[in-house]
Amino acid sequence: MIQINYRDPRPIYEQVKASFRQLILSGVLRPEEKMPSVRELASSLAINPNTIQRAYRELEQEGYICSVPGKGSFVADASDTAAMRKRELVVRLRETADELRKLGVGEDELADCLIGGKGND
């Protein structure tokens, strides 16, 4: 379900986190769907179970998943994930805007892009 990229410089737990975040936000993993167990992932990816535990713990703190004692972890419900998706897109938009500023695009031009985008909808 998820892949570890050995050329990716990020630590493994970050990669596990990012992959699941993406699967949840893009809707591949549906709200309330069961997450693979720590044991399953440790065997199939051949990585340390503590690493996966840590990724799950942080995903839970960030509200992407919730764990039910004795049953495993589940994807959090839809309203939460939609809010999260919104937050993520805003961050991405800011990053893009920053990059555009560095390239010499002025504030007015940036604003035009956004308003123009709305008009095109």
Binding site: I4, Y6, I12, V38, R39, A42, S43, L45, A46, I47, N48, P49, T51
Partner: peptide, 24 residues
């Protein structure tokens, strides 16, 4: 890793393959 997850086995491993050690 399955053994570690299921039984809490303690593993000590020497290796020069640091890329692999990083995962496990």
């Amino acid at each position: 890793m399955t053994d570690v997850a299921e039984r809490g086995t303690t593993v000590l491993v020497s290796s020069h393959n640091l890329r692999e050690l990083e995962d496990v």
